[in-house]
Nucleic acid binder design. Structure first.
Lengths: 328, 328
DNA sequence: TTGAAAGCGTTACCAT
DNA sequence: ATGGTAACGCTTTCAA
């Protein structure tokens, strides 16, 4: 450990302030000098000391991400994308899996440039004392002291219902009413019910199906129940891609064809996995859109740009041949 | 932002070096002075500057964890435990989801006290240039330049086979031969085959069942196939708890009773989820054991204690009534 | 018991 | 174009 710019300076026969400039690629250093210094730095395997750098420059080029226990799986792909985007903007991402409050404190001590909080439970109170700017991805809240990026789930489900209606579907089921309290899921169920009733679609026994969780097996069970009953819908909207996978398995087992016998649209923000036999119609905000907005907001916040406090991302409908038109 | 010890010193009417000592709880500061200083610090909402602290003390009290893309789900519980343990030892954990090489560089720049690498692919070459000590959790390798903590999977499966044999089982299936290359899974399959043949158990059609992945649905499918065939084992060992869940679902569907008709033992290091209908017999290293060893090794490495380069943790067999004895 | 001052590795400003 | 040096906020040694 411990190669410093002074060591490089000695080796290169220049002052260490010149080394500093060269390493920061300053135009104030002549090209040949710069080249030489960089070469020596590489040779000595120089690693800049982030602590010293931050202390002197008041800038860490680091963004702290609060990633609490919950949702670790679902958010994995999103975090990976955000990490990439921030890296492209030459920011380093550091994560903490501590509770929001603790993590925010840690990141404040580390003087990161900004903090991203993944927060499904609206814990805004906890983070109000951060002197580092905070951005959150979670449920929007007009009273939040910092920007929150949210997804318009209601609109997503609405789009799906509307589309199916236009295609002639009148018996539509929604699978994904998670038992227990989950505001994200409730929003979707509510939107389904409202959309359906606004369109004057008759409600029927299997209109809203509850599940234990959003896993593949839950979808499988739910679909089997439906398909064995007398109230078989012509279309299913489901709350997650995992549910959809289970539903597809069930249809295959029971020799029900998609989309001939039943159409299916899944809500999801994450990109579709390749391994589905039937490419899935989906509604949701593309992962790239989310990550771009999150990354951009973080950078804007760092640069003290004006930012609207609530950013609601609008979903897109992507139709594949997992849906069909019903002609009367 | 920006309350420093100098601000506190001014407010308290002492020198800032006294403040520093007081905040570090040094015995060199009188109790009343200390109390007063701490009170003021709290009042001003003072946050120590981690960068400055590290620069001056050469110590960060921080451990960097390299979080791999793969296996993020499985390792989630483990990293949570490790985080807790390290916190108890007053270390802060920071994660990076970058590739090993990048993450190690970042952590070197941040001068963390030690780096923990989760590494399934033995990428030791990448991390050899770290000046910060590295500890890895992954496949043991005698040539590794740093300590690796590993789990004795072979012994785990061996214990399971042996136990079932002692209980009179002679037709035992192993579900969990993952298609594709996965050394962790291969180790288990190999051990199963060796243990079985050492005990002189006849091999039969359904002895080793391959699966696409270790998910619940794969277990479900595999079990269904077995139970529909003519070669039904009296006991199943499976490679993960998720597989076990699927297997149990399949038995329920087909009215096969556990353990009356079939016994089941699952390999797993993570604690059993509560929601299984049948409490599962398991073999594996308890999560707490793993996390304790990892945390301890990290701290030992920081304190430059002597450490054996390969630590292999031994599994435990936990039998519940998912297994039964076969009497002739 | 408290204070003064050096120093950690770097950046950034001012001089040369 | 390069060098000198203060400053960043803190810990730590030495002096008082």
């Amino acid at each position: 450990m411990g190669v410093t710019i002074k060591d490089i300076a000695k080796a290169a026969g220049v002052s260490y302030s010149t080394v500093s400039k060269a390493l920061l690629n300053s135009p104030l250093v002549k090209e040949p000098t710069k080249k030489k210094i960089i070469a020596i730095a590489k040779e000595l395997n120089y690693q800049p000391n982030a602590a010293a750098r931050r202390l002197a420059s008041k800038k860490s080029n680091t963004i702290g991400v609060v990633w609490p226990t919950i949702e670790r799986v679902t958010l994995s792909a999103l975090i990976t994308k955000i990490n990439e985007q921030l890296e492209a903007a030459s920011y380093t991402t550091l994560l903490s899996i501590n509770p929001v409050e603790t993590a925010v404190t840690i990141f404040n001590q580390f003087q990161v440039d900004a903090i991203l909080v993944f927060d499904d439970n609206n814990k805004s109170e906890y983070t109000s004392s951060s002197s580092v700017p905070v951005v959150s991805y979670g449920l929007s809240d007009p009273n939040s002291p910092y920007p929150i990026i949210d997804v318009n789930r209601k609109q997503a489900i609405h789009l799906a219902v509307e589309y199916l209606y236009q295609q002639g579907h009148r018996k539509i089921s929604y699978i994904g009413n998670v038992k227990g309290i989950d505001r994200l899921q409730e929003e979707k169920v509510d939107s389904f019910q409202k959309s359906v009733s606004d369109l004057g679609i008759d409600t029927f026994a299997n209109a809203v199906i509850s599940v234990d969780s959003l896993d593949q097996y839950d979808g499988y069970l739910a679909a089997k129940n439906i398909l064995h009953s007398e109230h078989i819908p012509t279309a299913i909207i489901c709350g997650s891609q995992d549910l959809a996978r289970g539903i597809i398995r069930a249809t295959q087992e029971l020799n029900v064809s998609i989309p001939e016998d039943i159409s299916i649209i899944s809500y999801d923000n994450i990109p579709q996995r390749e391994d589905l036999i039937i490419p899935l119609s989906t509604v949701g905000v593309p992962l790239d859109t989310i990550s771009e907005h999150v990354a951009k907001t973080l950078i804007d916040v760092i640069n003290k740009e004006e930012i609207s406090n609530t950013i609601t991302l609008e979903p897109e409908l992507k139709i594949t041949n997992s849906c069909r038109t019903i002609k009367e």
